[in-house]
């Protein structure tokens, strides 16, 4: 089935899918905590909101690192199939570039939690 051929496209955008999940979870969790009046709550002794945001960001960064690392290895392993070489190089490169973009966005979105009050 040629639909299998769709998976390089999903690989190419996987980093941004991780970003989207990260963004929705971070915003959703923080909004929920604040609406429920849990600004002062803690998780394992840490303030709740920073703990959630930083935890999710760490998870997200690990995920994009895995995706990007896999693309990097395959890009430099010379295993890209002979006939579709140009095409698979391209999607692997895109996968890698996209993870860098996603990582940057996640870091920029997480930095505020170190500076601003959780719900103020």
């Amino acid at each position: 089935m040629q639909v299998v051929g769709f998976s390089p496209m999903l690989n190419a955008i996987a980093g941004l899918i991780v970003w989207a999940a990260h963004f929705l979870l971070v915003y959703g969790a923080q909004a929920t905590v604040c609406w429920r009046g849990l600004a002062g709550a803690t998780l394992w002794g840490q303030p709740l909101v920073p703990a959630i945001v930083l935890g999710l960001t760490a998870l997200g960064l690990v995920a994009v690192a895995l995706i990007g690392g896999r693309a990097w290895r395959r890009l430099h392993s010379g295993l890209a199939s002979q006939e579709g070489e140009e095409q698979s190089q391209f999607t692997l490169w895109m996968s890698l570039a996209v993870t860098l973009m996603a990582a940057l966005a996640m870091v920029w979105e997480a930095v505020p939690v170190l500076i601003l009050p959780p719900c103020g």
Binding site: L104, V111, I115, L116, P117
Partner: peptide, 19 residues
Amino acid sequence: VVVLTALLLHTLGLARAIG
């Protein structure tokens, strides 16, 4: 990336001070 990172940190500090 360099300019915006600096700007982000600066404006977050400002937002904190305003609060």
